[in-house]
Amino acid sequence: MFALQGRYAAWLFIAPAMIAVTVFIYLPMVLNVGVSFYDWNVLRNEFSWKGVENYLSTLDNIDFRSAAVNTAIYLAVLVPAQMLIPLVLAFLMLRVRNRFAVRTYRGIYFIPTIVSFSIAGVVWLWMFNPIVGFLNTLLESMGFAGHRWLSDPDMALWCVAAVSFWKGFGLNLILYAAALVNIPREVIEAAELDGAGAWTRARRIEVPMISPTLFFTAVTTVLIVMDEIVGVVDVLTEGGPYNSSSNLVYFLYERAFRQFNFGEAAAVATLIIAIVAFATWLQFRAFERYVHYQ
């Protein structure tokens, strides 16, 4: 295509993108690994070789450990929830005949996705307010006891998880709804003729047919849960009380930008990418046999 002159053009066309991702993503990623072997105090501008010590001290740090455990809980709860519940809702929407209703539901479910983390954060801060917030007012008006929500160490993490779910489920829902609509009608009709009920159809045909989308969302949801909860954490709890709702990215943020220990923070970043790479690899393995490409 586009013969000779095209060849030059192609290189020129991709050059800005290649330069941008190299300079701002791949290069920093490599440099990050480099920084993680140094002691770098930016305030005092001291810079010295430390080897793996940053990693050892990080792994030994009790705040890091609780952040790691919390991250595991966030992943274990939010990844299945952000895949299963939107999938169920997408199936329900598929059965609704009224197109206006479908569009309205879809639009509503998507709205929290376009709300920024800080808006979501302050809105829920207000909902959770223990004295005058809506949730406690409602609970107490019905005769239940109110909660301390965000300032309760046993509850803060679940509040952050709930808000993150609220903010995140819409995107997966849209993708599932789109994938389900794209299944060729003949396939569904053939199954109906064979007497397959709704449940069998969903399990044997529709879910396998959208398995590429499920795989895609599994990978992106892990990334989103790892990466982006930090906004919710920062606005709602700042990781507290007693680090009970902190996660790895928030720990990194505090290490780097509150305590200015860039070396250790870089070590945390390297650990994060190792975890994400491992999770992605696991997902590739798990879906390998299962994903069905048309």
Binding site: I14, N32, A269
Partner: peptide
Amino acid sequence: LFAVIVGTMTIPYVVTLIPTYI
């Protein structure tokens, strides 16, 4: 090269944070 570009979608942006900040 396309894989190099699309691959950035699987990288958590926090790993670029510190060097880019500096």
